[in-house]
């Protein structure tokens, strides 16, 4: 946030990224890549856009933003993603 307010409250694009919503999480999704068929459903189904395709074609989670909703785990056709209670 700049020190001076912009007239009319205009805001810069994509600036919510400073808000690390990973702190909301209770359950943490963990990949078991041996079962993964690289279908990409998890990536598509993530409301936080925080599942990222890696160079080897698998997927990883940006835990800075993952709220632990579990849609990825629920939608995965191969039970690749396990939801684990997160100890903080």
């Amino acid at each position: 946030m700049s020190s001076k307010l912009c007239i009319g409250g205009i805001v810069e694009p994509g600036s919510t990224v400073i808000n690390k919503t990973g702190s909301w999480r209770t359950f943490k999704p963990i990949y078991h890549h041996e079962k993964c068929i690289k279908c990409g459903i998890c990536e598509l189904s993530c409301p936080e856009s925080c599942i990222i395709k890696t160079e080897d074609g698998y997927y990883e989670i940006d835990y800075d933003y993952c709220k632990g909703c579990g849609i990825c785990s629920n939608e995965c056709p191969r039970e690749t993603i396990e939801m684990v209670l997160e100890e903080k």
Binding site: G14, T16, V17, T21, P47, E48
Partner: peptide, 24 residues
């Protein structure tokens, strides 16, 4: 932030939000 999506993370939608999916 690593995503290339035009709807950025860090928003305050509930975990599992349908609107966030729709916008994305």
């Amino acid at each position: 932030n690593k995503t290339t999506e035009l709807f950025a993370p860090g928003h305050r939608g509930c975990a599992g939000c349908c609107d966030a999916l729709a916008a994305k």
